[in-house]
Design a protein around this nucleic acid. Sequence first.
DNA 1: TATGAATGAGATTTCATTCAT
DNA 2: TATGAATGAAATCTCATTCAT
Lengths: 206, 206, 206, 206
Amino acid sequence: MANPRNQRRKEDRPAEITAAAMHTFAEKGFAATKVADVAKRAGVSKGLLYLYFKTKEDLFKAVVRSFIFPMIENLTDTVENTDLGAEEFIRGPLLKFAKSVPNSPARFLVRLLVAEGPKHPDLVTWYWENVASKGIGAIRTVVKKGVESGEFRSNAFTELPHIFATPVIFSILWKILFEEHDSLDTDKLIEEHFELILSSIRKNAS
Amino acid sequence: MANPRNQRRKEDRPAEITAAAMHTFAEKGFAATKVADVAKRAGVSKGLLYLYFKTKEDLFKAVVRSFIFPMIENLTDTVENTDLGAEEFIRGPLLKFAKSVPNSPARFLVRLLVAEGPKHPDLVTWYWENVASKGIGAIRTVVKKGVESGEFRSNAFTELPHIFATPVIFSILWKILFEEHDSLDTDKLIEEHFELILSSIRKNAS
Amino acid sequence: MANPRNQRRKEDRPAEITAAAMHTFAEKGFAATKVADVAKRAGVSKGLLYLYFKTKEDLFKAVVRSFIFPMIENLTDTVENTDLGAEEFIRGPLLKFAKSVPNSPARFLVRLLVAEGPKHPDLVTWYWENVASKGIGAIRTVVKKGVESGEFRSNAFTELPHIFATPVIFSILWKILFEEHDSLDTDKLIEEHFELILSSIRKNAS
Amino acid sequence: MANPRNQRRKEDRPAEITAAAMHTFAEKGFAATKVADVAKRAGVSKGLLYLYFKTKEDLFKAVVRSFIFPMIENLTDTVENTDLGAEEFIRGPLLKFAKSVPNSPARFLVRLLVAEGPKHPDLVTWYWENVASKGIGAIRTVVKKGVESGEFRSNAFTELPHIFATPVIFSILWKILFEEHDSLDTDKLIEEHFELILSSIRKNAS
DNA sequence: TATGAATGAGATTTCATTCAT
DNA sequence: TATGAATGAAATCTCATTCAT
């Protein structure tokens, strides 16, 4: 009589629901997303959804957290455990990460965050503390290591690690908004951008 | 009986309403903005607002158009009528323009566009055709002029004028989201970024 | 074109709605009353009802206040302005008032108050301050006047004016609950009860 | 495998559930009481509760019956089996009973009955047949015995045994509603009231 | 033009009840 | 017996839009 499918699904419910919610929020935004649609997409009743998430807002926050967290954790782990030199790291894992973001589901989360920021300031705070500041911090660590090891010279950009993020953010927005109107090779944009920065801070470059 | 103040206001009504709408949309986003609030802020009745704008969406589009249009028109005009050399133009009027955007009301329109894009694809199309492509086109024109005049060498960035926009877009989002958590000198970021690009395409730079 | 009926009704809307709500709440209680039913009974849309009363609870409180207030105000006014002696007052206006309560719409408000007390403690406080304590106070004033003028002797009941209220409250509950099962002559119960009390405190009675 | 504690509890389940329900209904009223809360308070699952009580209404009726029945049965038994004279009985067991009611859990049942009467007319009928009419009947029996034995004269109150109940009902409502706002010595009110009635019907009183 | 009372469709949320295990 | 995940009907409340004046 045991129904292994039901058994297995019971434990996955929250994840199934956040996955469905992720897609719906990404497509329509917070306000235009109907809880009923999320439930239908997840294949559950509205009532069950409310068993796991107390309000629509709760669900929204769970979505943002559960999808962004793994990404940024992955980045900081990589920075901490790498044996690579600073330039090698930037041209390797960091570039790969930067290129992947505009094509990952995370690009929708950027939209959600931008769109819903004013209505959900605590979410922005969470994002700042757990994602943005950590991401910038990770890049800063890498650059500092390069300066200390003598690979990099110290200049304006070693103090502005944000410069590594500008092509990524730009690419995300471009893809979200204009992908259908104009195709932009975001991989190339990011790669060239990284090379440009490296050429400026690389010591043996001058 | 004619009241000159009323008389004068009568002609400004649509502008007063879009101004009120601009602020409310910027603060709350499209869905969370109540038409009644806009009307109250503009000092008119709901009924009158509906006399000028057929629907809430109409009002939204009017807001986006009326505020963005002057900005981009100003940029393209400047490009067409300038006597400056390419580098002079970039370091002068273009840099000034780029620095001004993240501090202008336009930054809220970026948020609105990002947030409401999926619900208003025709607005995105309009924005693409009248703003984004023209802006990128203007930069492309300037860069091409520099290449043709021998000021600039031809490299990856002369084909990717988007690179000039990345720090601007990044600065806008940073200000919108994290201004309260972390202050970033966006002027400096944009200025250094422009210098970085110039150092790469300037012919006598190597 | 002027429609006098609409004109007149506009001003009466809140009163029309509270009247409809009064009947529905009395019939069904707070929780079982549907706002939609009240609106239908009042001949307006749900939306309009919410224009005048922010929540269902607001409406409930407005009902209690608007129906009880006139009654108790009437009693205290009569006490203050009477020329009658204490016994005359009790056998006249007070008895008349006491008899009228179990037959007035107020009897439903007692039910509402008893039923909803735990969910609406502020309403109970309001009722205590504005109705119950004033009602008891009014009786106390009358009795004290009788004692001071020498009409009444001072005994346990001159310190317990509540005794005048017991047959009224009992009659209300009996009517609410058992009217269909057993007819009780509440007028007679109240009248005999008053006479009983008077015979005990009247000075020339012993 | 048999666990004696479980074994014992198994038989008490219904009583444990009605006890938990009694408290929750008394605190919140019928509509605001959640079956889930009752189950948790009783320490059982919702499913098990539904095994014993087919619906929430069933549970409600069981509560009213199981708590009121013993009280009224106790009263009628005492009346039937007493050796006391009428006045002795009234000043003894009846007064004791009357004083106890406003302090017993039964006072909450009065609230429930008043509150839910309109929604549960069969419960009111049951209450009338099994409680109210029997209670009034018991008092009538006592008074009649007094008249027949020559202890009491026959007057309005020997025809209106309800008069003995008025201070009890009043005390219950006062305690339920205003206990926190104003303390009333309900014992004294009831006692003085009984004395008042007795002084009126006692034959050797005039 | 100008008002704002009035509408009604639609969204979120709750909870009694069921049922697979 | 016993559980509690799951359902879905129903209720409150919101707000864009209309329209009589």
